[in-house]
């Protein structure tokens, strides 16, 4: 006689060991990690070629702006490689700029919610996304990531939330609801911007009807770059806000 309990036991424990142990390669795939320019290459020539090819203007002749990168992999043909450190520690847009295209400096992000202990409620807000970021955020509830084990849950109203998780490029009709949702959060509160669209608008920056970047509308506390970032990057961002990331999210073993 098959049963739900038997089924659950047969699958065994799927849950990631992050943040106790570094994430595995399977959990943080290469393409969710930022491109870096390996040392030893002709930097100026490579940056110049890659800048011509970059569809979002993330790569310029001087360096790489991680906030705009959508991981399209075109620059890998010019010498860039995927596999930089997964970042969840940038509180200002300029923190995401790396001159010369090398890896970003390592530092811990801000922790505005450090006083909240082990409980953190998230409210997801879609400002104009393609749904990939939405599903990666909600994937935190699935058994592989199981954010509930860390006291992180999703709530149905901004009145009950500590963190406003924003995905997608802000569009004009959504700006006012966005502001009102932010006001509805009780303090202390934080805003987490997920994905290239919520950072700088990604591929859609400047399109009519949109109003990127998000940080001009809301005070963003932490940026999680990626297109979309992997669920563990998002989890690392949430934990950083709560001051519970003692080290940076490690590069997979």
């Amino acid at each position: 006689m098959p049963s739900w309990i038997g089924q659950a036991f047969r699958r065994g424990i799927l849950t990631s060991r992050f943040p106790r142990a570094p994430a595995s390669r399977e959990e943080v795939p290469e393409t969710s990690r930022p491109p870096v320019l390996p040392p030893g290459l002709e930097r100026i020539a490579v940056l110049g070629r890659a800048a011509d090819d970059c569809p979002t203007g993330a790569i310029t002749a001087d360096g790489l702006y991680h906030g705009r990168c959508i991981r399209c992999a075109r620059c890998t043909r010019q010498g860039f490689t995927f596999g930089g450190r997964a970042l969840a520690n940038a509180s200002r847009p300029e923190d995401l700029y790396s001159p010369g295209g090398g890896p970003l400096p390592e530092r811990l992000g801000p922790a505005p919610l450090a006083g909240l202990g082990r409980s953190l409620q998230l409210f997801l807000v879609d400002a104009g996304s393609c749904l990939a970021c939405n599903r990666e955020v909600l994937a935190l509830a699935n058994p592989y990531y199981d954010a509930a084990r860390l006291g992180i849950t999703f709530v149905n109203s901004p009145h009950h939330a500590d963190v406003l998780v924003v995905v997608g490029i802000p569009t004009r009709p959504i700006l006012e609801p966005l502001r009102r949702a932010y006001e509805a959060l009780p303090g202390p509160k934080a805003v987490l911007a997920i994905g290239a669209c919520a950072l700088e608008g990604g591929l859609f920056r400047g399109n009519p009807g949109t109003q990127a970047p998000l940080y001009e509308t809301l005070p963003v506390d932490l940026f999680v770059p990626g297109c979309p970032p992997s669920p563990l990057d998002i989890l690392a961002g949430v934990l950083t806000l709560a001051g519970r990331m003692k080290c940076l999210p490690g590069v997979p073993a």
Binding site: A73, R74, F82
Partner: peptide
């Protein structure tokens, strides 16, 4: 396909 959501995977110069 090099991407969880298959972005770029069907394009000529996408992820490997």
């Amino acid at each position: 396909f090099g991407h969880r959501w298959l972005f770029g995977a069907l394009l000529p110069r996408g992820p490997s």
